[in-house]
Amino acid sequence: MKGMNLGQQLVEYFSNNGMYVLQQFSRHFLISIYGVLMAAIIGVPIGIWISRSRKLSNVVIGIANVIQTVPSLAMLSIIMLGLGLGVNTVIVTVFLYSLLPIIKNTYTGMQNVNEDVLDAGKGIGMTAFQRLRFIELPLSMSVIMAGIRNALVIAIGITAIGSFVGSGGLGDIIIRGTNATDGGAIILAGALPTALMAIISDGILGFLEKRLDPSKHSN
């Protein structure tokens, strides 16, 4: 690769290792998605649940806040003590970091549902479940989606670090680049797709979030 500038080296790397990069890209993406999905499955109900009680919400959000403060490398190492090396450790870490934005946003979304709309819903004879299904969830969906979007962007970053505990993903390519002499192109070959993934996910979920916003109906 002597005599080529960084851009040419990068093109060269992609043309030789295109499939490999693609594999790592999808692996990276799936690790992030699994962690966030699990966090959504657990976090949204928790958010709904704590929105019914102020005391509870303080405790739960407090715990999630503490989790969020632990540096991600430290968290990975702690989880690794329990689960060993491998992909599960990273998924669990992503899950833990995703909890706070999802719980917090679900809670906020539920809190922001207009009291009068709920009162009217109850007054015309909706059950508690119907109020949740037809009023609260649709009205807070865009805020919940914003939480998931936030969580996914964080998750993509954590997954990159996760390569240190042997989970694979685009982080592998970055680490290889940092270990190699003159590995700038290799670093970029891992880092650029990672950044791209974060930006695209953010864009798509941001679009969904807008579509779900109930106040954007005046068109």
């Binding site: 207009n114 009068d116 709309v117 009217a120 819903g121 007054g123 037809f134 106040s215």
Partner: peptide
């Protein structure tokens, strides 16, 4: 019927 109307905005 309530004072603040309470129509479902969505």
């Amino acid at each position: 019927v309530i004072q603040n109307i309470g129509l479902m905005p969505h």
